[in-house]
Design a protein around this nucleic acid. Structure first.
Lengths: 347, 347
DNA sequence: GCTGGCACTCGTTGGGGTAGAGTGCTAATA
DNA sequence: TATTAGCACTCTACCCCAACGAGTGCCAGC
């Protein structure tokens, strides 16, 4: 009997069965139950030996002496990365997605629908970040005079979204001047991503103060003010948080409060989600992997979504570590793709 | 001993002491504790007699035979309406309010701050409705062409807030036509409340289809589309919900879920808050008085706030029935007044 | 009308005993 | 050498019960 033997086929099969069984009914899994679950005709005693090995490797643990075993975070990780057999998407779910995830006038509405579908279908919490401002591109910008030194700037982006902001300018502009400034900006920067516009604007201000004509300088100055990164970059739409109240893993009020506080703060959650912006497809944080204490009992299944093949945001599902990954993962994946499609401008 | 005797001075004094004591430490109050609490030098036995009377009148009840008494909703109601001695506002709290509740560019920011202060100071949940669209008045309206039949309408209201909306028009307009339409609307309707504008617009459309010139009719038509009641009328900013998780009254997960679901739905809460729009000052719902099952264990202390002496919204505090009314009531009152002040345009 | 005394009720707490689930270890087996 | 049966052991969950304490209602006396 070698303790540090590499994981063989049989051990993996048993680990898989154990995780599946535990996910299914939430009770620690004992050797007898496992012996009945698998096709391998093994006696509970043999399985106990294997389980002892798995425990040595840190893949499972037992809550106390006379309970069965439960997966550790490493156990879940191995299960998800190598053992999981994902289930194809339920056709009902797909129908629901296709029916509801269609273009709307308002980006926020689409995002809201996506979030709600995520939570309704999984019966956990759904989350969708707003498209990163810097990632979307400028379609049109316009200035409207409000009063003496206050100017309303309006810009439309390629996701058909209208943003507005009030600027306090250092001097007074005539409507004609504002019109001219807008014309200049539209002709030069239309089509570029806001990040690119912002970068170019800062460069222009630095380089060419002397050579530019007065009107253009004003225009660039205002563009700089207008494109200050908005707080929408730190926002998301969360749905079905209350679904999480039903799970026994989160029945501790202290923990639950901490989790909901994190939802309210947004900062931490956004930071976590941003880490998935550059992932290829679905990415998963299991329990403490997220690095946030509030999420210790939770897993997060995420996928980035794109507009015009440019990743602009992330969506995902938050639930207890013990969740039906084989169903959630493909669902999150497809939802991200369809959300991207719904946000893509037709023109 | 007459059961249905009118409440005399002494009974009221004892009821007051009982409610205060119960609010303070959350345990059913017994006759002995009450005998020590009050100045009236009465023996526990006498107090028991009075308590029996109060119970007959439905003002207090005992959870079980050998526990003390707790106030019923009627008991709280009587206490609040007639017996409560409100405490003057803590000077620290007032300072906090004055410091943070100042005009901002963005109405939502001010509302958010108000909500947060309400929850931070009371350590319960704070809620502030967004200003009712219909109640604020129109300052300026503008149309921008987007594409063929899509027009962006922008209007600024007297709370310095900018609203925008995309209209799908039946025909195509030139920029000049749009400009003319905006000019017409601004000259005729500027300064009126949105509700008034909407009413006038509908009237114009009905009455004078024939006599109006074409451009004005278009303008009015677009104004009608633009002023469709927005969903902002059904929105509020909630803060500190998680504070409610600490209270033993709400430790039942079922109940808590129901409450948080209600917060998420918004409809019910808005309906409840709207009932306070026409109240003179602070209004209070105790427990089941609200008529909503989810709020059965909660009280709601509200006050309307105004811009230019026109009531436009409501704010309040949500907490367990057992809350320190004598401090919450004046605090909500003052916060409403200061929020109104912060929203009032200077000009 | 108030009070002291008393019997009674009921929830809470903690101890003890048992049943059940599951383990680790050892010795036997293929 | 890998697997299995058997067995002693451990630990939790549950129930029962007794003791305790808080508080009540009622009555008799002041």
């Amino acid at each position: 009997m070698n303790n540090n033997q590499v994981l063989n086929e049989r051990s993996l099969q048993l680990l898989k069965a154990l995780v599946e069984r535990y996910i299914q009914d939430g009770q620690p899994v004992g050797s007898r139950a496992l012996s009945k679950d698998t096709e391998l005709k093994l006696s509970p005693a043999t399985i106990r030996n294997v389980m002892a090995d798995l425990e040595d490797m840190g893949l499972i643990r037992s809550p106390h002496t006379s309970a069965g075993r439960v997966p550790t975070v490493s156990g879940y990780r191995l299960f998800i990365d190598s053992l999981l057999t994902v289930k194809p998407l339920d056709s009902e779910e797909l129908k629901l997605l296709r029916k509801n995830l269609i273009a709307k006038d308002n980006v926020n509405d689409v995002i809201g629908v996506a979030s709600r579908i995520l939570s309704d279908v999984t019966r956990m919490a759904g989350v969708v970040t707003l498209p990163k401002r810097a990632m979307v591109s400028l379609r049109h910008i316009e200035f409207l005079p409000l009063s003496n030194t206050r100017v309303l700037v309006i810009f439309v982006t390629n996701e058909q979204e209208v943003h507005n902001k009030i600027l306090h300018t250092s001097k007074q502009f005539t409507p004609a001047q504002l019109q001219q400034a807008a014309n200049y900006l539209n002709s030069v920067y239309s089509g570029l991503s806001l990040a690119a516009v912002r970068k170019a604007v800062l460069k222009e201000l630095k380089d060419a103060q002397e050579q530019m004509n007065r009107e253009m300088l004003d225009a660039v100055q205002m563009a700089k003010l207008a494109l200050d990164p908005g707080k929408s970059d730190e926002d998301y739409v969360l749905s079905g948080e209350t679904n999480l109240m039903g799970f026994s893993e989160l029945s501790d009020m202290e923990r639950l409060k901490e989790l909901f506080d994190a939802f309210g703060q947004k900062r931490g959650v956004i930071h976590l989600l941003d880490q998935c912006l550059n992932a290829e497809g679905v990415q998963i944080f299991i329990g403490e992997e997220s690095g946030y204490h509030a999420f210790e009992q939770c897993s997060l299944v995420t996928a980035p979504y794109s507009i015009n093949e440019q990743v602009v945001g992330v969506l995902g599902v938050i639930g207890p570590t013990r969740m039906a990954y084989e169903r959630v993962i493909p669902f999150v994946d497809v939802t991200a793709k369809l959300l991207g499609a719904a946000l893509n401008p037709k023109t």
